[in-house]
């Protein structure tokens, strides 16, 4: 049985008239890497701020490690996070900044600092002042801070901001390794689905403060994979024809008038011929393959309309 790490019910946050988070329900199980996807201002950061206790929710509840939101102070040590921009003291070096937080957290083993810096490839600049850091280095130090003290849950808000492609892939490997070996659960937000796709195994789409959809990677693959879409008013009959006469087994009835076929066992023209031959009214048949970004756009579009 996997442990429930985070569970929110009807979490809502209002800033004066603006609703940043609109009754968000989500459950995070241990060992998952959660991808939080939404456009800028969709409510990702607000969501993270609420669950990390940076701000109080207007209504709704959340549970962290099985503890109610009013009682999470004791569980804070199990969370590492980077929310919005990384913030550290400019007059201190990377190492000193982490040393400061080691004091605060009560970490006695200073090798942990070096380990955290190594995970984000900052070992070489450990004695450089934070003020002189580049954007990418700052971001890395923020991630190092989140990984300090062996957390069980790591919350990262747009962690790949300002990083170069090589840096991104290195970090991705680090996240995957930590997830696999130490079972660290991640919640990572981004506005670019393809970036999250490479690391997350569950996705949550968020727009205008609402949780639109929660989907596993397998389901997302299925949604986005190449397929043949058959439009027909008689899906039941069409399915029997597909199965018995064409031997098609991987398909999905996506609505009462639409079937998606994922295998390429049969070409569209043959399918069409067989269906019509069996007396199934076919109103349209075409090949389709949505890219991740298109999928994301349709999802958001569906709601804003």
């Amino acid at each position: 049985m996997r442990e429930t790490i985070l569970k929110t019910t009807g979490l809502t946050k209002r800033y004066k008239k603006f609703t940043a988070l609109d009754s968000a329900d989500m459950t995070v199980y241990s060992g998952d890497i959660y991808g939080l996807i939404g456009r800028n201002g969709a409510g990702k950061t607000t969501f993270m701020k609420v669950i990390t206790d940076l701000t109080d929710q207007t209504s709704g509840e959340y549970e962290l490690f099985g503890k109610k939101s009013s009682d999470t102070a004791g569980e804070k040590r199990r969370i590492g996070c980077l929310i919005e921009n990384p913030a550290f003291f400019g007059n201190m070096t990377a190492w000193q900044n982490l040393r400061y937080y080691c004091y605060q957290k009560g970490i006695t083993d200073l090798k942990q600092i070096d380990r955290a810096l190594e995970l984000v490839q900052l070992t070489e600049v450990r004695n450089k002042k934070f003020r002189k850091f580049s954007l990418g280095m700052k971001q890395r130090l923020g991630i190092a801070f989140a990984l300090l003290d062996n957390p069980d849950l790591v919350i990262l808000d747009e962690p790949i901001n300002g990083l170069d492609p090589i840096g991104i892939s290195e970090l991705r490997e680090t996240f995957l390794k930590l997830n696999k070996e130490q079972g660290i659960t991640f919640i990572i937000s981004s506005h670019i689905l393809s970036e999250l796709y490479a690391v997350a195994n569950r996705f949550m789409f968020i727009n205008n403060g609402k949780v639109l959809k929660e989907i596993s990677k397998e389901e997302l693959d299925l949604e986005c994979s190449r397929c043949i879409v058959v439009k027909t008013s008689d899906t039941k009959k069409a399915v029997t024809v597909l199965e018995q006469e064409l031997g098609v087994s991987s398909y999905k009835v996506t609505s009462s008038s639409e079937i998606r076929i994922y295998s390429d066992e049969a070409a569209p023209d043959i399918i069409n011929q067989k269906l019509v031959g069996a007396g199934v009214p076919v109103s349209g048949i075409y090949e389709s393959g949505v890219s991740l970004e298109d999928y994301f756009k349709t999802l958001i579009g569906e709601v804003s309309e």
């Binding site: 804070k76 929310i83 921009n85 913030a87 550290f88 937080y101 605060q104």
Partner: peptide, 12 residues
Amino acid sequence: EKTVKNTLTSVT
């Protein structure tokens, strides 16, 4: 420096 959020999120 906005460092207050570091302490509030993961220390106390």
